[in-house]
């Protein structure tokens, strides 16, 4: 028996083929969840990083507490805290806020957004702190206002420096999003769990899900390589 026959005997590839549309929907769901959380999280992270760097302790401290909490606890527990925990304070069947928190999809969005915003805040804070003093002084000497300095000098160079670390964060978020399947959302992992329980085919179901995630991971890493190539061109050694 050659290798191909052995594989075909033990691997039920038909299970995957038959459920390909469902996997595709899962892929769309995963990408959608991760993308929306990342965009909102990034928008939150920039002002939060500025507050976190404030010299006023009463401004910086709450932001520190926020990032410490969300970076020090598992995303799974954060999701549970929002999905199961909110019902302790609001009537989920009465108000429109209740309807929002009753929906696993929105709960996952909130949890993922708050989580990635906390990590991204620290990434951007670190990058902003590294801004060379001379650049800020030069901007001041040109008569730029604080906001002009911020938008023209500090932010663009901080974003550049943050790029490699942010790439890691995006990959972490993608992998972290797999827990959405635990609260009934049909993302890639959710679909894999359904396929497994319906056909009792753990290898096919989860390995195919793993391949989809791996493809997305490589896509993200490749995209960031392109961005780095473009935006960090001035740091490359001249050949």
């Amino acid at each position: 028996m050659d290798f191909k026959e052995v594989i075909l005997q033990y691997v039920d590839y038909k299970v995957i083929l038959d459920n390909l549309p469902m996997y595709f929907d899962g892929l769309v769901m995963t990408v959608q969840l991760v993308f929306i959380s990342l965009v909102i999280g990034l928008c939150m992270a920039v002002p939060l990083a500025v507050l976190r760097l404030s010299k006023n302790r009463w401004v910086a401290w709450p932001v520190w507490l926020y990032t410490y909490f969300f970076r020090g606890t598992p995303l799974l527990v954060q999701l549970f805290l929002i999905y199961y925990g909110m019902g302790q304070f609001i009537d989920l069947n009465a108000s429109s806020i209740g309807a929002f928190f009753k929906d696993a999809y929105y709960c996952a969005l909130v949890a993922f957004t708050l989580n990635t915003a906390a990590y991204t805040t620290e990434i951007i804070r670190g990058a902003m702190k590294e801004t060379p003093r001379g650049e800020i002084e030069a901007a001041k000497a040109y008569g730029m206002s604080y906001f002009q300095t911020f938008y023209r000098i500090i932010l663009p160079s901080a974003f550049r420096r943050a790029l490699p670390a942010y790439c890691n964060e995006v990959v972490f978020m993608l992998h972290g999003s797999a827990i959405a399947g635990v609260v009934t959302i049909m993302d890639i992992t959710g679909v894999a769990r359904v396929v497994y329980s319906r056909f009792y085919t753990p290898f096919e179901a989860f390995i195919f899900a793993g391949l989809l995630y791996m493809m997305l991971t490589f896509l993200i890493v490749w995209a960031f390589k392109q961005l780095e190539h473009r935006w960090l061109a001035h740091l490359r050694p001249r050949s």
Binding site: L174, H175, G176, S177, A178, I179, G181, V182, I188, T189, A192, F206, A209, G210, Y213, M214, T217, F218
Partner: peptide
């Protein structure tokens, strides 16, 4: 490093 820990 390309696959989520939960899936593994």
């Amino acid at each position: 490093r390309g696959i989520p820990d939960l899936v593994l």
